[in-house]
């Protein structure tokens, strides 16, 4: 595409030789066919959910199984949306994910900066203690943490769901490693101009750290949006549940109505799928970035 005309990209990838090879060899035709088939197979469950969701309820259990209906309808979507709780759970998920992401970024950036760029008594062992926290699986803590939330009166509250998720030692670790790599000269220059540490962080370090901040933010948001176990433990009131928890525990109107169940699944899948469609590159590099560094 456009890359072929820019000399820099051309020098690196050598497109003059590569592009025609793809077009001609029969091997690449097979390769593309296999790749497309695999991708379709991988999408099949999602497509099947969509296909089921637009069937009239009576047709969903028809034998033999058919992919397409002759009478597509949005009835199932209308019924699911009319119940309202799905949208409430989605709103709860949004509130909690934003809260978790914002708090994680603020807390972890401050902490990582403190560990990377400031020297204070006890820094070494404090950082070691924080990093050791990476070894503690959150799953181990559900029972004592629930008891603690009970004592603090935070069961069935947004804070109760969000706060334990904010403690992400991995993110401190990832951010610190990035901050470590920022040459001190930049900060020293700012400090000469009389900037304090917070100022240096805000106007020197953070602007240079956009990719890692985006990565941490995206990783945290996706994680919080899809987190199941802790929100599942921390909520019993359906009005406070997040999307995965509400969908997974509250029964009822959907019952054995597969079109409605799949409509609910499709609606619930949409927000992040749409975000993923538009921000694929950022999400891919963000998640791969944190995954590799963490």
């Amino acid at each position: 595409m456009a890359a072929t005309t820019t000399p820099r990209a051309g020098a690196r990838t050598g497109p003059a030789r590569r592009a025609p090879r793809i077009r001609v060899t029969p091997g690449s035709a097979v390769l593309y066919a296999v790749a497309a088939a695999c991708a379709l197979l991988w999408l099949a469950p999602l497509l099947w959910a969509v296909a089921t969701s637009v069937k009239p309820e009576a047709e969903t259990t028809a034998v033999p199984v058919r992919w397409l209906t002759d009478n597509p309808t949005t009835q199932a979507y209308a019924s699911v949306l009319a119940r309202g709780d799905l949208l409430r759970w989605m709103a709860n998920s949004a509130i909690i994910s934003v809260l978790v992401t914002a708090l994680t970024l603020v807390l972890c950036v401050l902490a990582a900066y403190g560990f990377a760029k400031c020297r204070f008594p006890g820094r070494g062992w404090l950082f070691a203690v924080v990093v050791a926290g990476i070894l503690v699986p959150p799953q181990v803590l559900i029972v004592p943490l629930f008891a603690q939330m009970g004592l603090m009166g935070l069961v069935d509250t947004y804070w109760g769901i969000a706060l334990p998720q904010v403690v992400a030692p991995v993110m401190v670790f990832v951010l610190k490693r990035f901050f470590d790599g920022i040459p001190a000269a930049y900060e020293d220059a700012a400090r000469m101009d009389g900037a304090g540490p917070l100022r240096v962080l805000w106007s020197v370090v953070l602007p240079m750290s956009r990719p890692v901040l985006a990565a941490v933010g995206i990783f945290t948001f996706v994680g919080a949006w899809n987190n199941f176990l802790w929100p599942f433990v921390a909520t019993t009131d359906p009005a406070m549940m997040t999307l995965p928890v509400g969908l997974g525990t509250v029964q009822g109107a959907y019952g054995l109505q597969y079109a409605q169940t799949m409509a609910a699944a499709v609606i619930s899948a949409l927000p992040l799928l749409v975000v993923f469609l538009f921000f694929q590159r950022q999400i891919v590099s963000g998640i791969a970035g944190v995954g590799i560094k963490g």
């Binding site: 949006w225 199941f228 995965p244 619930s268 899948a269 992040l272 975000v275 993923f276």
Partner: peptide
């Protein structure tokens, strides 16, 4: 196609 399932909530 390959990554989309990862962004789905588990209940979905």
């Amino acid at each position: 196609a390959f990554f989309a399932p990862f962004v789905l909530p588990v209940a979905v």
